[in-house]
Amino acid sequence: MRRSTRRKINVILAEIALILITMVASMPLFLAVSISFQTPKEVFSYPPKLFPKSLYLHNYASAFDLVPLARLILNSTIMAVAITLGKLVTGLLSGYAYANFEFKGKNISFATLFATLFLPAETVMIVPLFLIMRKFGWVNTYWALTVPFMASATNTFLFRQHFKSIPKELEDAARIDGATPMQFLIKILLPLSKSMIGGAAIINFVYAWNMYLWPLIVTMEDNMKTVQIGVKMLIDAEAVNNWGVIMAGTIVVLIPTVVMFLVLQNMFVKSLVRSGMKG
């Protein structure tokens, strides 16, 4: 009796706390949507408005007008898809090597890879990496935006761990049936890893889509920039900060990852947590 009342009170308190926390945490996004539909007059009115009077779509048109948003979206898509695919392929192959094979130099090479786990080259070593791009003549190209990020220790670990969790007997059976190691990977392991691959894909995509510093310095021309830089361009675009337009651009930029994230939330959460567990 006492226990159940206490539990009830706890539930009510938790409900209230969650409502408050969610409201505060959603405020920035909610207001961004609201502002993106407000006329300049409404944006500048005091006290600030929570809701737009009507759906003023002009801000969205202006955002596309002020910066080549469509092109930036294309660039970001190319970059994010290429990095995602690259990371998946390299991660699957190397994860498979570490999980299912014994070979000379396994430990040393693994340590070499492990050492890069917390070394985001695009920030820590941005100067030399940039100079290398210059050497390659890759500055202001898709190569510079994609190739350096097509492998990561995280992806290797994720798939290594996943493959380790798949019973060894399966591989033995396949071998007896005459399957080559590559056939085993493609025909058996991959189908068993669908949700893992899906989750990793979202993590990689979000990471790539949201990159900022690297595209900022390595792209030169407007038509090579990415959406994140587009947001900064919008802020700098006019002699007066037109927040309605900036927010409209911001919404356009964040929609792809947010929608993808909401739709595939469960798959993603599982993979993300897996990526953090050690094997």
Binding site: T90, S109, P128, L129, I132, V147, A151
Partner: peptide, 19 residues
């Protein structure tokens, strides 16, 4: 299987580090 991963790690992480 390890070649692609290590090519990228070496060219784009280890080389810049030494550089």
């Amino acid at each position: 299987l390890l070649i692609p991963t290590f090519l990228i790690i070496i060219i784009f992480i280890y080389w810049p580090a030494v550089y």
